[in-house]
Design a protein around this nucleic acid. Sequence first.
DNA 1: TCATTCTTGACTGAAAATGTCATGTATGCT
DNA 2: AGCATACATGACATTTTCAGTCAAGAATGA
Lengths: 138, 138
Amino acid sequence: MRITSSIEYATRLMIALGREHGKAPVSAERLAESNSVPTDYVSQILVKLRRAGIVKSRRGSAGGYALSRPPAEVTLGQVVRAVDRGVLEDVCGKYDAGAKNCHHQEACAISPVWSRLGAVITEYLESVTVAALLQGDH
Amino acid sequence: MRITSSIEYATRLMIALGREHGKAPVSAERLAESNSVPTDYVSQILVKLRRAGIVKSRRGSAGGYALSRPPAEVTLGQVVRAVDRGVLEDVCGKYDAGAKNCHHQEACAISPVWSRLGAVITEYLESVTVAALLQGDH
DNA sequence: TCATTCTTGACTGAAAATGTCATGTATGCT
DNA sequence: AGCATACATGACATTTTCAGTCAAGAATGA
């Protein structure tokens, strides 16, 4: 349970793009350089953000990336989900193969706890917007 | 960011040991069988729980493991910390090698967010005790 | 002494994280 | 049209972590 490099990188990129919101798109190369993200790694992260609908891209000269929504409408939760796996990911399913929610016990005591933990994490991440990060509100 | 098998296993073991609190110690083998934890893996998890002071062990025949505190005084946070790495783990330090808290920027906007996320997670995990899991309070 | 059980560390295989690279495709400019 | 720019995609390599196995040793009780 930790913050991966991808999450860190994605967050930096979002802040950088947030600063340029409304202006011309920024190339992947410039984003990589100015945010200390490995040059050839930045594309992979950006494509995930694009597939999640958070950023949009334009090819060709004068192309690059830009936010598809205003910074105030982009949350950290959206960013994290775009580049990272979930918190839960079938933990309880491993308890007994084929079982849903540990049904081999009358009542699984654990499953609801991980669900609530996931909810707690999501709730916090959704409460932080890129706009807030730009303004230092936190 | 996910719940690992070790965390799941450790939690199951704590519940099992919580049920036996006050009675005779339970052997690793029995714990493994009755909780669907791989037999040879259970020792590694138990030793971490012991080093964290959560369980105590006794060797020899009629030996085994037992909680070192009542279930109500053991939190999920203690268990998770015993078997897993932290949430943060120097993420921001990677931003610029040698820099503390992204000091190459006047004010790092990201670092405080991960700190608060860690606090939110810890707060929830600390609020859940083994006793609560035994009673189904959650 | 002997069976039981924990202790420790080494070892292995699989999966995930982290990058790198090469090839292809779209766009704008001249 | 032709060219440089820049994204798109997938393959590949490396490192780290996770998950699990195994074996030799030490302590304990009968």
